[in-house]
Simulated assay, not measured.
Amino acid sequence: MFLNVYEVLFKFFGPQNWWPADDRFEVCVGAILTQNTSWSNVEKAIRNLKVHGYLSPERILELDSDILKSLIRPAGFYNQKAERLKIFSRFLLESGGFESLSKLSNYSLRETLLSLKGIGKETADSILLYAFSKPIFVVDAYTKRLFYRLGLIDSEKIDYDKLRKIIEGNIPADITIYNEFHALIVRECKEFCRKKPVCENCPIVRMCRFYERKG
C-alpha cells in the first residue's frame, strides 16, 4: 500500500527534485533553518548568506553572531538558529567534513547528529538523506497526517521512529524513492491533504479511509 501511494503520487506530480541546494552544506543549513517556518522564509535567509559570501562552515564560524542573526532573521527564531548553525559548523569542521563523516554507519552518524544541540530526529534524518545520501526515511507532520487519513496507521501521534521503520519496511531501500516520496508527501499535503482537506481532484482519494468515512 505504501509503495502504491508513492507510485500514484509520482505519476500525478512527477519528480520533485528535492532538496533544492547547490551543495551538501547548504542542505544542512536549510534543514536547520526550516524548523518551525516555511521553506519560502528559509530561501530568503539562505539567499542572504549566499549574497554576502557566508554560506560555508568556516565563514559562519568567523561571522559575528549578531550579523548572522540579522542575515537569517527571515527564517524566524534567529537567536536559536544562529547558535545551532555555529554548533553544526564547528562539528562539521572538527569531524573532518562530509567525507570523513560519510564513513560512519547510519546509526552512528544519526546518534552523533542527535547529540548536537537543536537537532532533532526530523532534522537529523533530513541531513542524513539529503546531504549524506544515507537510506533513511524522513518523517514529518505531513507524513503522519497522510498515512493516518489513508488508514495505514492508527494515530497521528504515532512515535516518529515507529512510523519511520514501518515505512522503510514497506518500500524498497532506495535513496531515490526515499527522497522523492518524502517530497511528494509534502506536495500532496500542501495541495490536497491539508488540515482542512481538499478532496476534489486528489490523486489518492480512492485509497483514502478518511474520505470514505466523510462520504
Rank of each mutant, 00 (worst) to 15 (best):
Y148P: 00
V8H: 02
F10Q: 11
E94H: 09
A141G: 13
T123R: 10
G14C: 10
A21H: 02
F91H: 14
E111Y: 02
R84V: 05
H52L: 09
L93P: 02
T143W: 04
K81L: 01
S100K: 15
G14I: 02
F88I: 04
C28V: 15
C202I: 09
K81S: 10
F13E: 08
K117H: 11
E62G: 04
H182I: 06
D22F: 12
A141N: 08
N170H: 11
K86F: 09
V198R: 15
K121E: 13
Y178R: 03
P203A: 09
G120M: 09
R213S: 02
I185V: 12
D23G: 06
K117G: 03
P203W: 10
T112Y: 03
G30I: 08
K117D: 09
S65I: 11
I127M: 08
S56E: 07
F210K: 13
H52M: 04
A131T: 14
F132P: 01
E7T: 12
E99T: 02
F137H: 03
C202W: 09
Y211W: 11
R47L: 14
S100R: 13
G76F: 01
K214W: 05
K162R: 12
K86Y: 05
C28D: 10
N48L: 03
L68S: 09
L63S: 07
E62V: 05
D159M: 04
P172A: 14
L93M: 15
L9M: 13
L128E: 07
I177E: 03
N201Y: 13
G118I: 05
Y107P: 00
C208R: 09
I72A: 13
D154Q: 14
K81T: 01
D23E: 04
I171G: 07
L3P: 00
T123V: 03
K11C: 01
A173Q: 15
Y178N: 08
K195Y: 05
I167L: 15
L9C: 06
L113Q: 00
V27A: 06
I127D: 06
P172C: 14
I46F: 07
C193W: 05
F192L: 10
F12H: 15
L184N: 07
K86G: 06
R24V: 01
V138L: 06
Y142L: 01
A124T: 00
A173Y: 02
D23Q: 09
F137N: 03
R59Y: 06
L101D: 08
A124D: 00
Y130M: 05
V186K: 08
Y148M: 02
I166R: 12
P20G: 14
D159Y: 04
C202M: 12
Q35T: 07
E180R: 14
N17T: 03
G120L: 10
Y54L: 15
S89K: 01
Q80S: 12
V27E: 03
Y54M: 07
S133Q: 15
T112K: 15
K50L: 07
I177S: 04
V27S: 07
G53I: 10
L68E: 11
Y160K: 05
R213D: 01
R213M: 04
E62R: 14
F25P: 02
Q80P: 00
K134G: 01
F147D: 02
F2K: 11
R145Y: 07
M1F: 02
K50S: 11
Y142A: 00
V5M: 01
N17A: 08
G30H: 13
G96V: 11
V27F: 04
